[in-house]
């Protein structure tokens, strides 16, 4: 009996350690960008606008500016926010999963690191969605497919301008009706 309980606890610990080490990288993805921060943002914005499925730009945040305003420095970070009512609507109408509105709008972070290169950070929407039942899992699976298209770049096309002000977005970048969320 002691061995049974010991094995059970060891299993729990084993999975706990695994989860502790890998969950972060499973839930979030980081990929390098071949472009600078502004151009990466601009190309993602363009891809979102061309993605269909109701996707609209919801805002552009620059959290590093708040650090600067407080007298400190942070390497550039810009968060592109996008929303599709096609995907957000069913979740927002269901009381059991409405708390997931905290994940809205969909965010893609573009930032520079100390190696001087630009990176793109995203939530792994597909895996995250699976945790919340079939409705959310299905929707987030679709979101993940669209999200993958947002970060596919065609370097042969000229760099589009970065859209700093999003129609419908407030001062902080959070949108009202314009963003759809």
């Amino acid at each position: 009996m002691l061995k049974l309980i010991g094995g059970f606890i060891a299993g729990l610990v084993f999975v706990g350690v695994l989860a502790y080490n890998f969950m972060g990288s499973l839930m979030f993805r980081e990929i390098p960008s071949p472009f600078g921060v502004e151009e990466t943002v601009a190309r993602i914005q363009q891809n979102i606008q061309n993605a269909g499925n109701g996707w609209t730009l919801a805002g552009l945040r620059n959290p590093a500016k708040a650090v600067e305003a407080d007298g400190g420095n942070a390497l550039p970070v810009m968060m592109v926010e996008a929303c599709s009512t096609k995907y957000s609507g069913p979740i927002l109408r269901d009381d059991t999963v409405r708390f997931l509105s905290i994940l809205m709008p969909c965010k893609i972070s573009v930032y520079k690191k100390n190696d001087g290169k630009t990176y793109i950070g995203m939530m792994n929407a597909g895996l995250m969605g699976k945790m919340f039942g079939p409705l959310v899992g299905g929707i987030m699976g679709q979101v993940a497919k669209d999200q993958a298209k947002f970060v596919q770049f065609d370097a042969s096309k000229p760099a589009p301008p970065m859209i700093k002000a999003t129609p419908g977005a407030g001062a902080g970048g959070a949108p009202g009706a314009g963003g759809g969320c």
Partner: peptide, 27 residues
Amino acid sequence: SRTRIALSALVAGAALAVLTAFATTAP
């Protein structure tokens, strides 16, 4: 049989841990 029991317990513990991790948490 002892080894089998120990392994079964290990797998059961792992499965429980996974289910717990993926369970929907109340807001």
